[in-house]
Amino acid sequence: MLVRYKTFPSLFNEIDELFAPTYPLFNRVRFVEPTRGVQVKDSGDAVNVVVELPGVTKEDVKVTLHDGVLSVVAERKQPELKENEQWVRNEISYGKFERSINLPYPVVAEKIAASHENGMLRITLPKAEEAKPKQISIR
């Protein structure tokens, strides 16, 4: 007699729930929000912007500055499954990502520097002279 054989047990069971009692840590972890992490920091002479863009190549990131608004447009391309391939889990979101940041200070557009490493886009925007903090000497 032939019995329908269920394919191998799913490799990735709902382990997160399974491990919750043994690893109390898992109860208070925070899931990564679907919007990518953006950080804006004032470092005195410059404004530093960090955008998390995992899986995005340098060619697929565009940074523009217009009217004091910094825009980051990035695209993460959806992987194509070949024949004989199937999803087991798909939590990563693909597609276009766009984020605009109102800069808190006027900046020197010519001196903006950007780097993209390990999925992190870092932009350093030097403040315009009039926006830099000034030390006032007390007589």
Partner: peptide, 8 residues
Amino acid sequence: VPAVDIVE
């Protein structure tokens, strides 16, 4: 918790 994609 990092987001994960798994392809078989």
